[in-house]
């Protein structure tokens, strides 16, 4: 479901404060995925559901305090990010760029002098809506997202799926802006290849 299907923000918040359960359900269905992506990236998959549950409860309780200075989605994302940070995963969070650099060095899409080996077929005439409506493609994207190296997956989830600003992401993950950009682009490039292959061959 897209944001466009929800009423304008002021009306939305007013109705949520007035116990509009049907609208609340639409809000959950619209924003849950982005919120989960943030919880998953910061706190890890094992407790992401728990974090999200807590975040929704905090949000429902704080609805009266929502002043509309930011969009509702940004507000929800901030709540889930804060909740997740308090439950920050314990394991090592070191970010290594070695594998990324290695990948570019041996990228089989290019000749040794950096030209494309084969023409990159055009699927760009498919609109984002068409891509989103193709369930098999979306399943394939999700499958490959889960296969990304963890640090790339974290940043892709925080930035593109969750919609967090880069500055906030760098603070949360403790990485420099340039490292974050490299990791994010590597993940996006991989996803572009997944979509391109699917559009070309119909295979995941």
């Amino acid at each position: 479901m897209k944001d466009e299907s929800l009423p304008p923000e002021t009306e939305l918040v007013e109705r949520l404060r007035n116990n509009d359960v049907a609208l609340f359900e639409r809000v959950v269905k619209t924003y849950h995925s982005s919120m989960y992506a943030v919880a998953h990236a910061i706190a890890g998959p094992a407790i992401a559901d728990e974090v999200l549950q807590e975040a929704w409860i905090s949000a429902i309780n704080a609805l009266d305090k929502f002043e509309g200075r930011s969009a509702l989605k940004s507000w929800l994302i901030r709540i889930v990010a804060n909740e997740a940070k308090t439950r920050l995963r314990k394991e090592s969070r070191s970010i290594s760029l070695d594998t990324v650099d290695e990948h570019w060095a041996t990228d089989s899409r290019f000749t040794p002098n950096g030209h494309w080996v084969e023409s990159n077929p055009g699927w760009d005439m498919s609109s984002p809506d068409e891509l989103l409506a193709a369930d098999e493609l979306q399943d394939c994207v999700k499958k490959h997202m889960n296969k990304l190296p963890e640090n790339q997956q974290q940043i892709l989830n925080l930035r593109d799926v969750g919609g967090l600003e880069m500055e906030a992401i760098c603070n949360i993950l403790g990485v420099t802006a340039s490292n974050a950009r490299v990791l994010l682009h590597r993940a996006r490039d991989k996803m572009q290849q997944v979509v391109a292959r699917f559009q070309r061959t119909g295979k995941c």
Partner: peptide, 10 residues
Amino acid sequence: MLSRGRYYAP
């Protein structure tokens, strides 16, 4: 597509 997809639907 990534920013609008619902990869973690409840």
